[in-house]
Amino acid sequence: MADSSRFQPNASLDVVGIGNAIVDVLVQTKDSFLSEHDLQKGGMCLIDEQQAEALYQSSGPGLETSGGSVANTMVGIAQLGGRTGFIGRVRDDQLGSIFSHDIRAVGTRFETPSATTGATTARCLIYVTPDAERTMCTFLGASTQLEPEDLDLSMVKQTKVLYLEGYLWDSPAAKRAFIAAAEACRAAGGKVALSLSDGFCVDRHRESFLELVNGHVDVLFANEVEIKALYQTEDFDIAIEKVRGCCSVTAVTRGSDGSVVLSGDQRWEIGIYGLGELVDTTGAGDLYAGGFLHAFTQGHSLERCGQLGALCAGQIVTQLGARSQVSLPELMREHLN
């Protein structure tokens, strides 16, 4: 059942995301490349600009698209037919132009001015091995220089949901922007959603995240590792019980075990959609959030939100990269009655 009463009535956008503006460079490679460059398979490491350039030059042909977790989610919502905006910082360089053009081309509003000084545009080198495992090397560059002055608060005040990336908590300036945007959105009647982003990110900022989750976030997204890290337990059910009631809605993904959606004393177990051979897990969590938030902003039931999230995630892992190569609305019509 749809419920559009949960949002401000005059919102011109469904979801606005604030996150790291990163160009994803996806490269299909062999395990030997990882060994040669001393990269931990399946891991995510931060690298500096010199390392990023050296790895980029050593890599084979790659697929370059606008990326970053929240940006991927905004694109997924736009592909589903939602109205989205994105706020993030790039530099006035080649990769910055690629990011700006790519995210606008899919219908997402992006108006943050490019930096003219400082670090170059962020990039994430994503190495996908034949077993579909991804190994990520990220240079955050200009994305960490987002300031409160970069915020388009008019956009924030026009959205049903503001979606924030936990990674922003690593930068004091971006953190201030994050808080200012959340306050402006809530004052205008919008809702705030947060992605915990990464288990290591949770470990770095646990106390701040717990404070956010307890009363400042309406919709929380996490995977199993992140939610257990937040509550410092190895028991998934204990973590779920601790988060229950802290946010209006919590969605936790569990890989091949599907996902769990919580609201009050209700719990929905959402299965996975096996739509083909596993090729690349890049963007699976991002597209889950995209499907979920699209259904959520259209007033659908929370069970339906979880199902659309699972469907979008199930599609994206059958291809290279986080941009669906098939029509997500057609996929939705085919699999969700």
Score class of each variant (00 low, 15 high):
42 G>H: 12
38 D>Y: 11
50 Q>V: 15
41 K>A: 08
108 T>P: 01
157 K>E: 15
50 Q>D: 14
38 D>C: 02
139 F>W: 10
165 E>W: 02
107 G>T: 08
101 H>Q: 15
138 T>V: 04
113 P>N: 00
86 F>Y: 14
174 A>K: 04
155 M>Q: 00
115 A>K: 07
142 A>K: 00
116 T>Q: 12
131 D>V: 11
40 Q>P: 11
73 T>A: 11
106 V>W: 03
35 S>F: 04
37 H>S: 06
125 L>S: 05
48 D>R: 00
145 Q>G: 11
45 C>W: 12
136 M>C: 05
148 P>G: 06
156 V>T: 00
70 V>M: 06
80 L>G: 12
101 H>F: 06
60 G>D: 12
93 D>S: 01
129 T>Q: 04
133 E>N: 13
119 A>W: 10
63 L>H: 07
71 A>G: 09
82 G>D: 03
166 G>T: 09
151 L>P: 00
149 E>F: 00
61 P>E: 06
66 S>C: 10
69 S>Q: 05
146 L>W: 10
146 L>G: 07
115 A>E: 05
111 E>F: 08
61 P>K: 06
116 T>I: 09
153 L>I: 08
67 G>N: 03
162 L>P: 04
162 L>C: 03
53 E>L: 13
172 P>A: 00
174 A>C: 13
81 G>M: 05
35 S>D: 14
94 Q>D: 06
67 G>K: 10
96 G>W: 08
117 T>K: 02
108 T>H: 09
109 R>L: 12
57 Q>K: 14
158 Q>S: 14
100 S>M: 01
44 M>S: 13
164 L>T: 08
45 C>M: 07
49 E>H: 13
75 V>D: 10
106 V>K: 14
139 F>A: 04
123 R>V: 15
73 T>F: 09
168 L>Q: 10
158 Q>D: 15
159 T>S: 14
146 L>M: 11
62 G>N: 00
57 Q>P: 06
63 L>G: 01
100 S>D: 01
39 L>K: 12
49 E>R: 13
90 V>W: 00
101 H>C: 03
63 L>D: 11
160 K>W: 06
132 A>T: 14
55 L>M: 02
143 S>D: 06
70 V>F: 02
60 G>V: 15
155 M>P: 04
69 S>G: 07
114 S>E: 06
116 T>Y: 02
117 T>I: 13
138 T>I: 03
165 E>Q: 09
76 G>S: 13
101 H>V: 05
92 D>W: 03
152 D>C: 10
133 E>K: 12
92 D>T: 05
141 G>H: 02
94 Q>E: 07
91 R>V: 02
74 M>I: 15
103 I>W: 13
133 E>Q: 15
109 R>P: 05
59 S>A: 15
135 T>Q: 02
88 G>P: 05
41 K>H: 10
70 V>I: 11
98 I>P: 07
